[in-house]
Each structure stands twice: as C-alpha cells, then as structure tokens.
Write a protein that binds this DNA or RNA. Sequence first.
DNA 1: CATCAATCTGGACTTTGTCTAATTTCCGGA
DNA 2: TCCGGAAATTAGACAAAGTCCAGATTGATG
Lengths: 142, 142
Amino acid sequence: MIIMTRMHYTRDNMAGLLRGHDINPTHQRIEIAHALFSRQEHLSADQVMAIVNTRHSETSKATVYNTLKLFLEKGLVREVIVDPSKVFYDPNTSPHHHLYEVDSGKLSDIDATQVQISGLPPLPAGMVTEGIDLIVRVRRTD
Amino acid sequence: MIIMTRMHYTRDNMAGLLRGHDINPTHQRIEIAHALFSRQEHLSADQVMAIVNTRHSETSKATVYNTLKLFLEKGLVREVIVDPSKVFYDPNTSPHHHLYEVDSGKLSDIDATQVQISGLPPLPAGMVTEGIDLIVRVRRTD
DNA sequence: CATCAATCTGGACTTTGTCTAATTTCCGGA
DNA sequence: TCCGGAAATTAGACAAAGTCCAGATTGATG
C-alpha cells in the first residue's frame, strides 16, 4: 500500500500511485485518478467524466465506469452510497464517516479516529465485516 | 403518532394506521401499506409493485412510487439507501441500524438501543440532524 | 344527481449504469 | 524496425429505476 502525504497530485505521481496499487497506468486512468486526487473530493461517475473531458473529449463513458470499478477493487478509492440516484467515489480511503447535506447534496468527511461505535451485536456465523458506513444526514434550519 | 404493537396487519387496520398518519386511505394505499407491514421487511419499489399486483394488475408504477414517497413524508416508513441500484423502504421507523449482506442483498435490522455512537463532531452552524444511518456491510467467508 | 378535488393511470421520457463487438494501444521478441 | 497478441478503449445499443404529465376515475358533499 502506498500512502501519499503532502504531495502534489501531478499526473506523474498518479502513475506511481496507480502502479503501487497494481494498476497499469494508462492515459485515461491517470486522468481519472488526477481528477479525483487533485480535488480530494467526492465525485460521481458523470462528474468525473465531465472533468476528464473538459478540453476535448478523450475518455468514453464505458472507460470511466470500468476505471472507477477497477480503482474500487484495487482499494484506491471508496464507494459512498448516500444519494439514491448516484454513487460517489471517494479518494480518501482512511477510516472516516460522512456528513451529507440532504438539500444541496454536499458530502464531507468526518474523521473516524474521534468517533466510537460500541454495542454492535455479534455478526451472524460465517460473516465478516466488509465495512461500516456511518452517515449523518443534515438539513438547513430554515 | 400511532404505534401498533402485536397487532394483526389486516387491511382494515391499515386504514386506521394511514388515517393516524394523515393519509387518506385509498385502496391502493392500503394494499401497499399491507405489503410492507404484514411482511415487516425491507422492500424496494418494484418488489412492492410485484406483491401488490400478484393476482390481477391493480396498481400502476406511478402510484407505487407516489405512495411510497407519501408514506416517507408522513413518517410511516423509512428509506434505506444501501444498494446503489435501488432504494428500500422500511416499515420499521423505530431507531435502528442495518446489516447488509453484500452478496445476497439481504438487509436486516440492528436494534439501536444497544448501540452507542460517541465523539461525533458538532454540526456546522445552521444545520440539524435529520438522521444517522449506520450500515454494517458484511460478506460471507468463503 | 352534479360538481369538484383528490387520486390513479398508461406511457413517454430521463438518468445511471452495463454490455458487446470492433478498434486501438502497448510491449516483448525476432 | 516490424509483428503478434494481450490489454485497454470505444461507440452505441441496451436495461432498469425513477419521474412526469395529461387525461380518466373515484368519492365526498350539497
């Protein structure tokens, strides 16, 4: 596992990041990784596509979806399911939770090191935890 | 608010439940409520539609979606967002969390009274919590 | 019975995501 | 450098969930 701390998210460094996660760094993959990591934001597939194709159309829809799925499998990004209509991809894979502003759709991180979850019942036999998602849904007081 | 404890979820009782939540009890709404409450399960919109229309086609897709949204607004059911491809509706509105079996898509409840969540940071100003969703994603050990 | 508001309906439409077959790119070896 | 094959990308057809709308139905009230 490669951890990049306080580093510029240049396209060159993206290539290294991808290699470190066993991903063949192609043009398209580098662009997609760059979109996610340089922003450090939660992006949906169509947002990624829009960013990557701003200048000239470069990357197809199929590739964006394939690549995000690949990144997910390789542990490079996390999937965040908060909005019924689209999946977000999160370049932050360290343990954290999410704050979701229902009206605006804005999604932000909550550091997990401060948060304690206790009293969860034992898992059914033959099951392992794949992850615990904690989502705080908030709304503007109006 | 009406709480129905240890009661048969007959269609007649559904009418009362709906009225208690300020919902005009029509045929279709009673059928949909009955589908959810008699099973006490998490159902997606298309599952509800399939159940309601088993005998003869009775209720349109639009009505199923409208009705579930209405139930949600009136606090009769809860929305559970765990599967990127469909929303589940949960007739259990008492505080609880969810256990989601990733492979099978099976969703079950975790009673919230045992579970403690502490150390959450204060909310941004002008925000109120609408709900906290805790989802434990599990997978079969194979 | 007539009226009016509430509800329901079919079906067209949108959006997110998947699939496939054909093409392009990349890389190692002759 | 050229060749061959594997990996990656592509366009576009397709699928599924959900929305929208204009017209039809229902049901309560006078």
